[in-house]
Design a binder for these strands. Structure first.
Ligand SMILES: NC(=O)c1ccc[n+]([C@@H]2O[C@H](COP(=O)([O-])OP(=O)(O)OC[C@H]3O[C@@H](n4cnc5c(N)ncnc54)[C@H](O)[C@@H]3O)[C@@H](O)[C@H]2O)c1
Ligand SMILES: NC(=O)c1ccc[n+]([C@@H]2O[C@H](COP(=O)([O-])OP(=O)(O)OC[C@H]3O[C@@H](n4cnc5c(N)ncnc54)[C@H](O)[C@@H]3O)[C@@H](O)[C@H]2O)c1
Lengths: 256, 256
DNA sequence: CCATCTTTGTGCACGCGTTCACAAAGACAT
DNA sequence: ATGTCTTTGTGAACGCGTGCACAAAGATGG
């Protein structure tokens, strides 16, 4: 997964561990699906399976929020959806600006998963005058000159950067100066920000490189074992035991 | 990140901690930039700053790879680029398929950061016959029926999934059955895969929710400190402090 | 009201990752 | 060579996150 993380050391926001916060959206997604199927209650075991985590971990995560379960029964789905939403701050609207309306920015602008969680696109911004005024996902692209005004007028506190790497720091600085305090950065650069500003990064290239590392390692082990062990058909190894392993694979959130 | 991470317990791949692996691409990026500026050597302090990490951490990370530095001088940039590239498996070509050529898939297909690291797009795949044959980033979209053949013919071991969530597990199963052992998933679903297959996920929505959480917390602290401090006009805080109050929410609806 | 059965909430131990702090290694000047 | 100065490489301590295992809570049935 993708993501890197900002430098947030022992902050332990209001007692909720960072690792737990990162999983809450996962639980919320699973719970929302259950809610849509009108399932009234769910056990930690079931929900954990749906979210792809260990049930003990899930229970401990929920315990940070409070005692919302009923022993012998499980958790009330609707209630939990509400509690987690509230904890994550999703009961309110978060105006967001996207800066850099190239391929990626346009894809994000049209992404439905945005609005469905209370993230409202306040504006799409680009420095290219050719793009100014053009409609993307129904919204007109605004010129970068208007950035400060847009952020201030709309009380935007979250900014998404999808400009080329070279422009990212400058855009970031302007966003922060205008009042943005949370940034989601897709440009492959390290952003420097003042204290109090959160930055999370998504870097596709890094994700692929991590996969490549493990891929290479797998190939290496294969080779090794086929040298040590009697030469089994390589093809069989490639197809290696494909059991529907219950390995709940969680992605990427590393402390920085 | 996008992070979180795979459940890779005591695997400690060849002694290199997972956290270190996740940072190697970061170092590589910084080193590549230095290389392009023809900088011959770099100290752990400088490189750490460029990569946005602690210098002790960087040195420890490198120590897992071997002793590539020179005391009193630093690290040889070119040599380190090569060593890290080799460790990550970037000295070879990795054929990749992208499945689901919608907005996001198209953006990824055109992304330059792909090829620049040895990730070669072997094929773009979509189930929509309307798209079949259409050129995206210079490559023709192939129909999903061809998936297995493409993967086998090109020895593809890395697959990228950018289909809607509902189709992701099925696509994943087919990729794995055809021989793919590493998957980068952009669909908001938990994928179940056999042992030996790595999955990393990138979820924009989760990233935004984590930002929202901290954003809310910041707003809460703001409010708190202005309540603890001499009673400034509460009204001013409500209206002036631009974020809508975090805790002034609806009272809890208790479950049965 | 009591017994039984299910499932939560958590104490505890363990391992990984981070960071500090410093000895040792080497470059460089004299 | 010898001394000084810089910077690496790592031992050690610490803190966070994870998962086991179980007591307690509460539902349910008789
Ligand atoms: N396309 C992908 O799949 C992908 C994947 C991962 C990361 N990224 C990164 O995301 C960023 C955007 O990628 P892309 O493919 O959309 O690039 P792109 O070139 O298509 O779009 C970049 C846009 O940013 C605009 N821009 C440039 N400078 C600006 C400024 N100062 N202020 C406002 N707008 C500015 C440009 O006009 C352009 O429209 C890049 O940093 C890229 O490395 C892209
Ligand atoms: N667009 C974004 O910015 C964004 C951001 C984060 C996550 N995502 C996720 O990425 C995925 C793709 O998003 P999108 O906006 O590109 O959606 P999209 O609807 O534009 O594209 C999806 C594509 O997948 C194809 N498809 C559907 N079923 C398929 C199958 N079985 N095999 C092959 N192809 C199939 C469709 O024909 C379509 O072209 C979604 O799961 C979305 O939730 C998107």
């Amino acid at each position: 997964m993708a993501t890197g993380r900002t430098h947030r050391p022992a902050t332990r926001s209001r007692g909720i561990p960072e690792a737990t916060v990162a999983r809450l959206p996962l639980y919320l997604r699973a719970l929302t699906a259950l809610s849509e199927r009108s399932v009234p209650t769910v056990s930690s075991e079931e929900l954990a399976a749906a979210a792809g985590v260990n049930s003990a971990k899930l229970r401990k995560d929920f315990s940070y929020l409070g005692s919302y379960g009923t022993r012998g029964v499980g958790y009330d789905v609707e209630y939990l959806v509400y509690q987690i939403s509230r904890e994550l701050g999703l009961t309110q609207d978060w105006p967001v600006v996207i800066v850099g309306m190239g391929n990626l920015g346009a894809a994000l602008a049209g992404y439905g998963g945005f609005a469905s969680r209370g993230f409202r696109i306040a504006a799409l911004i680009d420095a290219d005058v050719q793009l100014t005024g053009r409609l993307i996902a129904g919204l007109p692209v605004r010129h970068a000159d208007e950035l400060e005004g847009i952020v201030e007028d709309n009380q935007v506190s979250i900014g998404v950067i999808t400009t080329p790497a070279g422009a990212a720091q400058e855009v970031c600085d302007r966003l922060v100066a205008a009042g943005v305090t949370s940034i989601l950065n897709f440009a492959p650069t390290v952003l420097t920000v003042p204290d109090g500003v959160d930055v999370r990064k998504v870097d596709l290239s890094i994700e692929l490189q991590i996969l490549a590392f493990h891929e290479q390692r797998k190939a290496g082990e294969e080779l090794e074992s086929s040298l040590t062990a009697p030469p089994v058909a390589a093809k069989a190894v490639r197809d290696g035991g494909r059991r529907p392993g219950p390995d709940g694979d969680v992605p990427a959130v590393m402390p920085a």
